[in-house]
């Protein structure tokens, strides 16, 4: 398949590169090994959430529940481990729970016909509430040492969290660009009726998209717990919006049918660099939020301009 959305990918990666070069000049500590490792840590978890939400977005849907799913995952894995369940089993259980919740979102969307915005908005409230209830509203500390160590470990100079992100990037990229299932996300997002007539199992693809979204949110939530060394019910607050923003800035269309996981990665990276840069330059971090907001508006506007030009040529 032709590389989807070549041009947004070029835009977002070029922006990332230009911003990095500019920062290297105006804030030389940017290119120190320490800071680059720091940047990798900063981008890792957010990027995982963004990879997840890309799938529903490709279908023309949305997932607003990922932040809360992440918090619930963090609290659940902490509770399981502090109650003596082995680390590996705790993590697998929580990831399976995440995938299951996501499949339920897909089911509610597809079978019950509830708009995904509503389904996952409900999820956003429910899982945050569940995380608060399970934890009694407080943080859960005393996690196993080995679990906490994972997030601070590194391999070949690259933080382990970033390895997880790279592996996820590779896996999602393979799925989306090489396999039938991956192609069907684009087909369903583009024209569900055409996909159905061509024999694509639209229900399966919908369940899978939401399951993957919540799975990656759970993975992000577990890693966040490892990084913070606690399970906290207020973790990952607002992550759904950064995740959606990363996917959109990376070239995904909220109408479905377009988007790439590599673009999403660069989108997440771009936001992380903005935060990191404002920090290095001693600018009030609240400015980075303003900058991020403008960036989203700008990129989406540029995209719609490009599309209008196409329409004009037709």
């Amino acid at each position: 398949m032709t590389v989807f959305q070549k041009s947004p990918l070029v835009t977002v990666s070029a922006l990332t590169l230009i911003l990095s070069l500019a920062l290297a000049v105006v804030a030389p500590p940017f290119i120190t090994l320490d800071n680059l490792q720091n940047l990798m840590l900063q981008v890792s978890i957010g990027a995982l959430f963004a990879f997840g939400v890309l799938f529903p977005i490709l279908l023309g849907g949305i997932d607003l529940a990922v932040g809360s799913v992440g918090a619930l995952a963090g609290v659940s894995v902490a509770l399981l481990m502090t109650n003596g369940v082995p680390i590996g089993i705790s993590v697998l259980l929580v990831l399976a729970l995440g995938a299951f919740l996501g499949a339920v979102h897909g089911w509610a969307t597809f079978r019950l016909g509830i708009p995904p915005f509503v389904v996952t908005l409900a999820g956003l409230q429910i899982y945050r509430g569940a995380a608060l209830l399970l934890s009694g509203g407080t943080t859960i500390a005393g996690l196993p040492e080995a679990f906490n160590r994972f997030a601070v470990a590194s391999f070949l100079g690259i933080p382990s969290l970033f390895w997880v992100t790279l592996l996820s990037l590779g896996a999602c990229g393979f799925l989306l660009s090489k396999t039938r299932t991956g192609r069907y996300f684009y087909a369903v997002g583009s024209n569900p009726e055409a996909a159905r007539r061509a024999g694509v199992d639209v229900a399966r693809i919908t369940y899978l998209a939401y399951a993957l979204s919540a799975f990656f949110a759970s993975l992000g939530g577990v890693l966040l717990a490892s990084r913070l060394a606690i399970g906290t019910p207020t973790a990952a607050m607002g992550y759904e919006l950064s995740a959606i923003a990363a996917a959109v800035v990376g070239g995904a269309s909220l109408f479905g049918g377009r988007g790439s996981v590599l673009g999403t990665f660069f989108g997440a990276l771009l936001f992380a660099i903005i935060r990191n840069g404002t920090n290095l330059m001693g600018i009030d971090p609240f400015w980075s939020m303003v900058a991020e907001g403008f960036l989203i508006a700008l990129v989406v506007y540029a995209d719609s301009l490009g599309r209008r030009r196409y329409a004009g040529l037709r």
Partner: peptide
Amino acid sequence: QDLALADDLDVGANIFLGREPI
């Protein structure tokens, strides 16, 4: 009449949609 094509896929992907060779 609406041709049932997936707009975001390319020509080849549309012709083989649902029956992609592996």
